[in-house]
Write a protein that binds this DNA or RNA. Structure first.
Lengths: 117, 117
DNA sequence: CGGGATCCTTTTTGATACTG
DNA sequence: CAGTATCAAAAAGGATCCCG
């Protein structure tokens, strides 16, 4: 016995499920951008569209609904005229910022090394 | 002038491009799992398949090629018999670990809160 | 063992147009 | 303004079989 005496019998990824779970959140198209845009404070639908020009209204609203469902952001209807809706990060949503920053950092390096595709 | 005196004229996401760039790396199916499996040291193709049972050989090899191309990992053919191939994280690849850990952490919380889907 | 080649299905995204 | 509806297009992933 003890045939395969590799140092790494498998790092054991018990967190790989939460990983997948969280990737579903930030993995959607434009999702990181939405969170990034909200990091400085609440923003309205049309403001987000300006922040992220290439996103279509359909995809944006889809992302926003998903993120609200998962407790990443809140949707508040402001009693103004014309009516407006504000989106803001929840505390949980804010916790995604460091993760995204880490990703940004590596992405940055990738560009510098010309490894971006 | 100064019509829109919102506090956040837009957090300005200049890094949103590297962000997208990096998301392309870790955004693929099973990619985080691959990196996670390699975090403890080099692994072979078939070992990765064991670590990540649901991944098909096609997708796994696709991911590995992408990751190699982007300098995240190295591919080394070992002169053994039968021949084997080892994959290992590069220093750049290792820098993704903290990012993934941050993601895992939030994913973990999501599960606890029952917000996972 | 370590994949490449195919083919097919599912999931996602995008473009437009239209409404309360 | 803040979306929804519809339709079409495209990625992405999965299943298999095969080969050096």
């Amino acid at each position: 016995m003890a045939l395969k005496m590799r140092k790494n019998v498998s790092p054991k990824p018990p967190e790989s499920c939460p990983l997948t779970e969280c990737m579903k959140i930030i993995g959607g198209a434009w999702t990181p951008n939405v969170i990034w845009s909200l990091r400085g404070g609440p923003r309205r639908f049309s403001e987000l569209r300006v922040d992220i020009p290439p996103v279509s209204p359909k995809v944006l609203s889809t992302r926003l609904r998903e993120l609200e469902e998962r407790g990443v952001l809140t949707r508040t209807i402001m009693p103004t005229s014309p009516p407006s809706v504000e989106y803001a990060l929840t505390p949980l949503g804010s916790r995604l910022i460091p993760a995204i920053e880490a990703i940004v950092e590596v992405g940055h390096e990738l560009k510098e090394r010309g490894l971006a595709h």
